[in-house]
Each structure stands twice: as structure tokens, then as C-alpha cells.
């Protein structure tokens, strides 16, 4: 095993500055790069486990109330534009593909391609946020956000119970909002990664793992949206409403 033949290079002299890097970008607590990279991948996945549980609780709340109030929620969901949501879904999907290709380029140490692809991811993320901005402002314009003013234009909800429609929009803003926060954080991280590639930082150019870790995060953001899109934008018409459908709507 490699660890036996490569003992500690520490001698108690690690000050505040020289503690970070041993030779070749290996942090002092690791034996070698392989151990470090394995740790990073596992560490990133433990973080994503917490993210799964984090969003999972919201999906649970969503599922419970959607089951209980399917009709009111169906009527409320008609105010979400599934085309806009669909464009965003495709948009994130393309960004995920770019990211996967960027990691592949990082494996090949092809700096130019990595930078171009990461730039592509950034553009997709920006488009996503712009579309989200228009969706949100549209909702605010129609008073479709929870709060005392929600009742102002009740007629546009086609008779949905206003309390339950409020819950729908409450969860819509909470879940897509938290997802949006994750997109913004992702943009910051990708920006930092691009900066490192731009500056030819050996930490990223010599080793594809940092790029892979950012990729894992970004794919997770895409993953959440894969569920958010059908759950919020593509709600089938409940049976009880199908009988006296008043035209329009999702069909």
C-alpha cells in the first residue's frame, strides 16, 4: 500500500501558511493524491446526501398537501406557464450536458474547451435565472403570492379554495426559490472554478477532481429541477374536475 512507503512529511513545523500544500497539490493530512481525491468525492457525496434530505422534506410536505388538495392545486397550477418551465428544464439539461463535457475536457486537460463549456454552463444558468425572474414578477403582478393581498383577484383562480391555492403558491415559491438560491450559489462556484482555470492554477489543471466536484453539485441542481418541473408545472387534471371541465387549462 502506498501509505506505508510514503510516511509523514510533517515535523511539527507547520505554520499558518505552509500547512496547505505538500508537493503536487496534496494537502498535508493526506498520504497521496489518490487518497485526497477519493476523500473529496466521498465528501461531496455526503454533502449531497444532506441536500437530498433537505429538499426531500420539502417534497414530502408538497406530496402530502398535493394529495389532500389536488383539485384546488390543479386550478392554482394553471397559472404557471409550462412552456417557460419547459424551456428552463431544457436549459438546465443542456447546462448539465455542458458540465459533464467540461469534466471530460478537464480529464483531458484541455483548458480552452473547459473554459468554453463552463462559460456555456454560466450562460444557461443566467438564462434560467432571467426566466425565473419573469415568472416571479408575473406572479407578483397577479397577486399570486401568499399573504393578506392574495384574495385581491380571486376570480382568476376559477373557484379554487383560496387558502389551499395560497399553500400551492407558498410551496412553489419556497421550493423553486431554494432551488434558485442553489443555482446562484452554483454560478458563484463555477465562476470561481473558471477563474482558477483562467489563471492556470495547477490545482485544477493538473487534476480534474475539483472540476468534477463542481460538476456533481451542478448536476444535483439539475436533478432537483427534474422533479420540480413535473410536480409544479405539469399537474394532470384531477378526475373530479375532469367531468365538468370548463375548457382551457392543461388539456
Amino acid at each position: 500500500m502506498a501509505s506505508i512507503t510514503h510516511p509523514g512529511h510533517g515535523d511539527g513545523h507547520h505554520g499558518a501558511h505552509d500547512e496547505h500544500h505538500g508537493p503536487g497539490g496534496v494537502f498535508h493530512q493526506y498520504i497521496d493524491l489518490e487518497q485526497q481525491n477519493d476523500s473529496y468525492i466521498v465528501g461531496m457525496w455526503t454533502f449531497l446526501v444532506t441536500e437530498v434530505m433537505f429538499f426531500g422534506a420539502l417534497f414530502l410536505i408538497y406530496g402530502l398537501y398535493r394529495y389532500a388538495y389536488s383539485q384546488d392545486w390543479f386550478l392554482a397550477h394553471e397559472h404557471l406557464d409550462y412552456v417557460m418551465g419547459g424551456v428552463n428544464t431544457f436549459n438546465l439539461l443542456v447546462s448539465s450536458l455542458f458540465m459533464a463535457l467540461a469534466v471530460r475536457a478537464a480529464q483531458l486537460k484541455d483548458r480552452k474547451v473547459v473554459l468554453r463549456l463552463l462559460g456555456g454552463v454560466m450562460v444557461c444558468a443566467a438564462i434560467f435565472m432571467v426566466i425565473k425572474y419573469f415568472e416571479y414578477t408575473g406572479k407578483f403582478h397577479e397577486n399570486l403570492y401568499p399573504g393578506p393581498t392574495f384574495t385581491k383577484n380571486a376570480e382568476i383562480l376559477h373557484g379554487a379554495n383560496l387558502n389551499k391555492a395560497q399553500m400551492f403558491f407558498g410551496l412553489y415559491f419556497a421550493m423553486t426559490g431554494l432551488h434558485g438560491v442553489h443555482v446562484v450559489v452554483g454560478m458563484l462556484i463555477i465562476g470561481k472554478l473558471m477563474h482558477m482555470w483562467w489563471k492556470k492554477n495547477p490545482m485544477v489543471t493538473e487534476d480534474y477532481i475539483p472540476t468534477e466536484l463542481v460538476g456533481l453539485y451542478w448536476h444535483f441542481v439539475d436533478l432537483v429541477w427534474i422533479f420540480l418541473y413535473p410536480l409544479f408545472y405539469l399537474m394532470p387534471r384531477p378526475d373530479a374536475l375532469a367531468a365538468h371541465a370548463s375548457g382551457g387549462g392543461g388539456h
Binding site: A68, P146, G147, P148, G170, L171, F173
Partner: peptide, 11 residues
């Protein structure tokens, strides 16, 4: 933000 999630009066 008055997001109704656990409010019994809103369901």
C-alpha cells in the same frame, strides 16, 4: 413571508 405550510387555518 406568510407562506402557509403548517397553518391549520389555511388547511
Amino acid at each position: 413571508f406568510k407562506l402557509p405550510i403548517f397553518s391549520p387555518e389555511l388547511g
